[in-house]
Amino acid sequence: MKRKNAAIRYLPVILLLIFLLTGCTASGPAQSLPAERTTFAMDTLMELKAYCGDDVLDRCVERIAELEKIFSVTDPESEIYSLNDTGTSVLGNDASILLKEALSLCERTGGALDISIYPVVRAWGFTTGEYRIPAKEELAELRKRVDYSKVEMNGSSVSIPDGMMIDLGSVAKGYCSDCLAEMLKEAGVKSALLNLGGNIYALGTKPDGTKWNIGIQDPNGSGYLGVLKASDLAVITSGGYERYFEENGKVYWHIMDPATGEPASSGLISVSVIGSRGVVCDGLSTALFVMGLDRAAQMWRDSEDFEAVFVTDTGSIYITEGLKDDFHTAGAYASEEIQVITHE
């Protein structure tokens, strides 16, 4: 029995050791630094960060430049420019894939997204920065030229009616992030964060195995309203705050409602769409913004490929059910009650 006695005598020492051990936080293993690239394309700053060799990211930057050259509305050498210019064109691989994708999104959203809205956006001055409020008659005239369903696509050959102009800007960055993500995954990259001017694609996880933390821009301020944990997801936000002008105390933003030819006023001031395909998220973020909360919620119930965060003009935050465990509000919004949109 002497031995048992001794064992118990050492108990305090053992407990003390346990305390001391818990006091020291183990420092993680040293992590190599990510490769990073910054490039200006598609009218925005793009930041790429990936845990891989420099060469892989260099190829990504090249790919971005290549895609920009195809989709630009203003570059006379782009495929889209030539389609708009001549009304008919045979598109290359990327352009025909994206146009087909875009058209199906236009249809899926019942025209809330319309890739032929460009003439209207231009009339408001959002393409040049010389903002103006077009007259009612002018808008009525312009709206006759807006109708994605008149785009005829046969394989890779496309024709559009006279006066129509196609702009894939509402889906191009999303498509771009999909292309880059695919390239990176093929190169065996397990961890990367693509920030294409606020359109985020979180590839894999952080090197420590945890999900990426993606802030959602506060539409009323400079911070973010909440944080989303994401892995292999695109997080794309459309908000009235991105580009707008004020006249006579009224705010006019760049997201147009194709049905009216005027800035969308659906009661939403920001929509973030989260899903595995950037192109879908990009197009839907614009479309849901135009649709408003009720129609957008219905669209979510009818779909399986995205989740969303909505902010209304009264400052309420709504999230779809699938984000419940991965989203939390932050900063000034911490006191905000989050409404969860469910399937009922």
Binding site: L193, G198, I200, K206, W212, N213, G215, Y224, V227, E242
Partner: peptide, 10 residues
């Protein structure tokens, strides 16, 4: 602190 946000979607 909030340096835990890796990127901001906007």
């Amino acid at each position: 602190g909030s340096a835990d946000v890796d990127a901001v979607s906007r």
